[in-house]
């Protein structure tokens, strides 16, 4: 669960550009460094490229130009196996949750551990405890379609953090939940952060940012600006 001590930067972008197919560049020259154990908000208007930037961080997109290092490794030099091992260190919460329909909430949350080859007896207690913590203890065996939007989101977040990732990425995580649960989720994130997890959250909900001491980055016109904190490097 802990970061390797020699790693300084969890995420490093150097002059990164991205375009979809033949479309215009979503961003043309992004530099970014997320230090180990940092907590960062990524803001910007809708369509600015927040989700796209996150996708680059969790290895679902490749940049059209520039260099990206994850955990001090150049992603363009990673083979498929190394990429997947890297992904296992990254917890991701997306706007559409991506829960697997035919698996129970318990099974969905346990997925990263199961994929990593852990034994059920070893993880079932952890999964149960985490589900209780996010308020889904009574719905462990429910199917995702029977959950409300907010419950689905909490299940997705539980899945993202169950493997105690080194980097936690969330795309609008509080979009669907009421403010009280939103606070609670944020507390979960900051708890993870206190234990060493680097956190990157894309959101346009500025009220969230007031509660937590964090770096704030704003993506605008294809580049990244520092609003607060010391992450941005020129």
């Amino acid at each position: 669960m802990s970061n390797s001590p020699h790693i300084n930067d969890v995420v490093q972008f150097h002059r990164v550009a991205l375009r979809y197919d033949r479309g215009p560049e979503v961003f043309s020259d992004v530099n970014l460094r997320l230090g180990r154990g940092s907590f960062t908000f990524l803001t910007g208007r809708s369509g600015a490229g927040k989700s796209s930037l996150l996708k680059l961080c969790y290895l679902t997109l490749k940049p059209s130009r520039g260099l990206i290092n994850l955990f001090d490794h150049d992603i363009s030099l990673m083979n498929r196996q190394e990429q997947q091992s890297t992904k296992h260190r990254i917890g991701v919460v997306l706007q559409d949750f991506r829960l697997i329909d035919h698996l129970s909430v318990f099974e969905n949350v346990a997925l990263p551990l199961r994929v990593a080859g852990q034994m059920r007896a070893a993880y079932s207690q952890d999964v149960t405890e985490l589900l209780q913590w996010v308020g889904l203890g009574h719905r462990m065996e429910a199917m995702p379609q029977t959950l409300s939007g907010g419950e689905q989101q909490r299940a997705a977040i539980a899945r993202a953090v169950i493997a105690k990732p080194d980097l936690l990425i969330a795309d609008e995580p509080t979009g669907n939940v009421d403010p009280i649960i939103g606070r609670r989720l944020l507390r979960l994130f900051s708890e993870m952060n206190r234990m060493g997890t680097t956190v990157l959250i894309a959101t346009h909900d500025t009220s969230l940012m007031r509660d937590i001491q964090a770096d704030i980055l704003r993506i605008e016109d294809g580049t990244l600006h520092r609003v607060q904190g010391e992450v941005f490097d020129g």
Binding site: Y58, T60, R80, Q81, Q84, S85, T86, K87, H88, R89, I90, V92, R98, L99, I100, L111, P112, V115, A116, R159, A163
Partner: peptide, 16 residues
Amino acid sequence: RDIIRVLVQVGAQDSF
């Protein structure tokens, strides 16, 4: 396909 996408996202190897 959707299930595979999730498995890939949580770090499943191709062999898995």
